[in-house]
């Protein structure tokens, strides 16, 4: 039996321990906001937070997650109050198709915890999620905007 916390909720899993966290979240927990993009940890569409760190959930087997505290895109806002990264994404009108954006947002939220005011170089070095629509230009603007919002609040 694997026990983990997902978005603050205690969960139990006794299925195939080889199954990646991604499929547990999407198919078992019905948290469909975390997306499947590649299955090899290359694209980042499946990014969640595990114990506060960004994790590409498509390559993380359930067997490695006993006791883990998982946060998905559905758990990023506080009730109706959006996380500043989510707000910045709306303000910059960043998404096009939107499929990769949950992963982009989760990666960014974690980056801003480590580096509250990232330079462009910090963004280049830390955000590697793929987007085929080509929304990167607005994503960069949204990251800077979210950083400013968070700094202003502190």
């Amino acid at each position: 039996m694997i026990r983990l916390v997902v978005n603050g909720k205690q969960m139990q899993f006794d299925g195939d321990p080889d199954m990646p966290l991604l499929w547990y979240l999407r198919e078992d927990a019905k948290l469909k906001g975390t997306k499947f993009g590649c299955g090899i940890g290359q694209c980042g569409a499946c990014t969640v937070h595990a114990n506060g760190a960004a994790l590409r959930s498509c390559t993380a087997p359930m067997s490695a997650l006993d006791g883990a505290d998982i946060k998905t895109i559905e758990g990023l806002a506080t009730g109706d109050k959006l996380h500043p990264v989510q707000e910045a994404w709306i303000d910059e009108d960043a998404p096009q198709c939107g499929y990769c954006q949950a992963g982009q947002i989760m990666a960014t939220a974690e980056l801003l915890q480590r580096i509250p005011d990232p330079s462009d170089k910090d963004i280049d070095d830390n955000i590697s999620n793929l987007c085929r629509c080509g929304s990167y230009y607005r994503i960069r603007k949204a990251i800077h905007r979210a950083a400013k919002t968070i700094q202003g609040r502190e």
Binding site: R26, L31, K32, G33, T34, K35, F36, T72, I73, E74, L76, A77, L82, Q86, W89, I90, D93, P95, G98, Y99, Q101, A102, I105
Partner: peptide
């Protein structure tokens, strides 16, 4: 004009084909 449905996208609530 900003896109409609953006809040759903950024909260993971938007339904794509895979969902």
């Amino acid at each position: 004009q900003k896109i409609k449905g953006c809040r759903e996208i950024v909260t993971g609530a938007m339904t794509f084909g895979q969902d």
